[in-house]
């Protein structure tokens, strides 16, 4: 079995993995980081989105071995020193979640949207959510949360990347 070294949420992990192990399986089953979810088996729902090298990817469509030497951030690594990321805060403030299952992938995708677009308009946010399904919210409050967080992330002038 190949051995891989991945930095997950700032912590370096070295582990042997079967090549067919998906990144999401590695995160959930080996590292017990169960915040990243699996909502489909056809690479469409986005519940499994994490950041690899600072970009949002589907951890269900990425092999763990492909991530050797990469930096991975999951929902568990988004808050820093107990302080929620503005996107997490915005989802709570604007009721952008109900059952919570799509939420980790949705938030990771949302951070990536703002990282790339800065201050996107509503249409852009809706289009950019193409790869994330939510069955509860009708997206209304998710869109609202992302727009609000984008403003805060801009206003704060802070480094907006999670990594």
């Amino acid at each position: 079995m190949p051995s891989i070294t991945i930095t997950v949420n700032g912590r370096e992990v070295t582990s042997e993995v079967e090549p067919r192990t998906l990144l999401v399986e590695f995160l959930r089953e080996q590292l017990r980081l169960t915040g990243t979810h699996v909502g489909c088996d056809t690479s469409q729902c986005g519940a499994c989105v994490v950041h690899v090298g600072g970009r949002a990817v589907k951890s269900c469509t990425t092999l763990a071995v492909q991530c050797d030497q990469a930096e991975v951030t999951t929902i568990e690594g988004l808050a820093r020193d107990g302080v929620l990321h503005p996107m997490q805060e915005a989802f709570r403030e604007h009721h952008g979640l109900q059952c919570g299952y799509c939420t980790p992938g949705m938030i990771m995708a949302a951070v990536d949207i703002v990282n790339r677009h800065g201050m996107p308009d509503e249409k852009t946010v809706r289009e950019e959510l193409d790869g994330n399904l939510c069955r509860c919210t009708g997206y209304h409050n998710i869109v609202k949360a992302i727009l609000a967080a984008a403003e805060k992330m801009q206003g704060a002038g802070q480094p907006i990347a999670a990594e």
Binding site: S43, G46, V49, R55, A56, V57, K58, T61, T62, A109, D112, I113, R116, E128, D130, G131, N132
Partner: peptide
């Protein structure tokens, strides 16, 4: 093409 996550890979 696809969605943002697909385009990243």
């Amino acid at each position: 093409i696809g969605d943002p996550h697909v385009r990243h890979r």
